[in-house]
Design a protein around this nucleic acid. Structure first.
Lengths: 201, 201
DNA sequence: CTATTAAATCTAGCAACGCTAGCAAAGATG
DNA sequence: CATCTTTGCTAGCGTTGCTAGATTTAATAG
């Protein structure tokens, strides 16, 4: 009994196991990074976390950077979803402010995740054909914000994104005192609200 | 002849030599970083560049990060000076636009230098007592920009800085297509000009 | 149930890294 | 010239990312 009748079952199961271990690796990387910083995310450490030897990791990812890139993509997915939700909930209210707040909250709550998405030197391409859909989706949330009101939604979206990224990054690295964050947020939203009205006309 | 009469001369000369070698190390680090990236800036490589053995470097800097931090401080000095000059040259013209352009030009011309100033995980503290004067000076340039016109110059300065930093960083890491940079700059300046007039009143 | 083949996993090791102890050379002082 | 301090180098430790080759485990066939 139980000897498989050669159906694709076992290959299927192996695929599942492989996928499960892949996400296990990514989760371990995230957790260690968030708790102890990215320098502590070594291949040996991750192997230990998932109770396998190091070479197993290289069956899932080409190298260490590929692991970080996978974490980054997951981060972009979550960020995009958070922004979408914020935009939906403030449908006819202050969508710009809601998205901005959601963005900064994401960055503040998962600093290591945010770091790997932007600061670490790995190249998750953006505007090329190889850009992961998670990244496109996240930026699409910005575009939707200014699609209706502005004549040049791309430029305004990029600018809004850049401002939020700058605030997040300078806060994360301790350059901005955190207590004024609310004021910064309000001022920023004010600026881009003005621009929605096409310069006070 | 030439045997020193015990004056502080030789100690003085040694001090000079030491200082010279220190800047030599910093320059080597900058050059290698700009040409081959920060991962190639290893202690062995720097030792080779200045034709000394590795331990000599540790007589000047506590560790590798201290070298990078020194490069970063140099970068802040140059950035601050560039901004000051731009502000002076456009004294009664578009100071905001001039400073913004100077900032982005600096970041674009020295990407590795800009990277070590912000992205690398080393902590050059900002608002604490141990903040290097070069850093204070650079941020002071932003403050001066909005000192007169705005009621809250700190918040507006931080916001302006964050926007520029975001643009610089997203451009450096290939997230922004470089060709729209001019448009982004104009739009940004427009936003902050509006805010100078206290919201179009 | 056993033998054979294929797949998965581990052990062990390489080169390069940051960093340091301990020795050799050079320079300054008597 | 002899002594002593300073300066620099050689060599090596522990850790990193990554990989080849042996080994064990699992799947197939008789």
């Amino acid at each position: 009994m139980a000897t498989t009748p050669a159906g694709g079952r076992i290959a299927e199961r192996k695929q599942r196991d492989k996928q499960a271990r892949r996400t296990q690796i990514i989760q371990a990387a995230r957790q260690v990074a968030e708790l102890e910083g990215w320098p502590n995310v070594t291949v040996r450490r991750l192997a230990d976390e998932i109770s396998y030897s190091q070479p197993v990791l290289y069956a899932h990812f080409e190298n260490r950077d590929a692991i970080l890139a996978a974490v980054a993509v997951e981060g972009f997915q979550e960020l995009g979803l958070a922004m979408e939700q914020a935009r939906d909930e403030a449908k006819h209210g202050d969508a710009v402010g809601a998205v901005a707040a959601a963005y900064l909250e994401f960055a503040a709550n998962s600093p290591a995740l945010y770091e790997v998405m932007f600061s670490l030197g790995l190249s998750v391409p953006f505007d090329s054909a190889a850009t992961p859909p998670e990244l496109r989706f996240a930026f699409a949330q910005f575009l939707e914000l200014f699609q209706a009101q502005s004549s040049r939604p791309e430029v305004l979206s990029e600018l809004f994104w850049a401002s939020l990224h700058g605030i997040a990054e300078l806060t994360r690295t301790g350059r901005f005192p955190p207590q004024r964050q609310q004021e910064r947020l309000q001022e920023l939203v004010g600026l881009f609200k003005v621009s929605e009205d096409e310069r006070c006309r």
